[in-house]
Computed example of a mutant assay.
Amino acid sequence: MNYGLSFARFRAAAPEWDAYTRHPFVQGLADGSLPRQDFLNYLVQDYLFLIQFARAWALAVVKAGDLDEMRTCSATVHTLLDHELALHVRTCAAAGIDIQTILTTPEANTNMAYTRYVLATGFAGDFLDLLAALMPCVMGYGEIGARLAQEAAKDTPYRDWIEVYSGKEYQQACIDAGALLDSAIRKRLGDDPESSPRWTALTEHFAAATRLEVGFWGLGTT
């Protein structure tokens, strides 16, 4: 999928991108070999992650420079709160894990490290800093979903998860996020952003969040 030029540049500058999007956890989703309990452990932590991630996108509404940016960030908050979280609740409920159990599960250290990094980046920096830290999660899951929709075993028990992230709504959210990133960079850094003294810091935020994504998959492996 084409998620925009800025994302492609950030992705190319993130050494651990393949370690994230082709992690053994992802392969386990594709071929069905991932133990169900490992998946559920990850899903509970990911629910807690998405709460903080939604806060970060809400912060992006505050950091945004105009109404178009605000609307796109607000729509992403809606996708997180009303679609992704619902998938987690349904899947966990089918396995006998109710919402109260999810909400009383302590956040793993890896989870806190990632979400607080993104939030701290947003509070300390500007709209571009925050977007750079947010994008690996958004785009990575879109890329994984699109690829697994083509490559995953037909009988994998994780088909529902794959369909959410390969589905039209989530893929459109990725396209919109990519357009937001391109537009925000162009408005602030011009048509040659890589020549800006800010570019290195932005790619470092993206790369750091990518490393934290690699670590996050470890919450679902034993």
Results as ranks from 00 to 15, higher is better:
130 L>I: 08
92 C>V: 01
178 G>V: 13
76 T>S: 09
220 G>N: 03
85 L>N: 04
39 F>P: 00
60 A>L: 14
180 L>E: 02
58 A>V: 06
96 G>E: 05
113 A>Y: 06
14 A>S: 11
73 C>A: 15
66 D>V: 06
81 L>W: 01
123 F>H: 11
184 A>R: 02
161 W>E: 01
124 A>K: 15
135 M>W: 12
134 L>M: 12
42 Y>Q: 09
156 T>C: 11
129 D>V: 06
56 A>M: 05
122 G>R: 03
219 L>Y: 04
28 G>C: 07
60 A>F: 01
134 L>I: 08
213 E>S: 12
65 G>I: 02
133 A>K: 10
198 R>T: 04
137 C>L: 03
159 R>N: 03
120 A>W: 00
201 A>S: 15
81 L>I: 09
77 V>Q: 08
146 A>Y: 13
132 A>D: 09
128 L>N: 01
18 D>W: 00
205 H>L: 03
14 A>E: 01
163 E>P: 00
2 N>F: 09
7 F>P: 04
105 T>G: 01
58 A>C: 10
123 F>D: 01
6 S>N: 05
171 Q>H: 13
154 K>F: 00
111 N>G: 01
120 A>T: 08
6 S>E: 05
90 R>Q: 14
107 E>K: 14
52 Q>F: 00
167 G>Q: 12
164 V>Y: 13
84 E>V: 13
24 P>N: 11
211 R>D: 13
25 F>C: 05
167 G>R: 14
13 A>F: 08
154 K>G: 04
3 Y>W: 10
46 D>V: 09
43 L>C: 10
63 K>C: 09
193 P>V: 14
48 L>N: 12
35 P>C: 11
10 F>A: 05
52 Q>S: 10
40 L>Y: 02
109 N>S: 10
194 E>L: 07
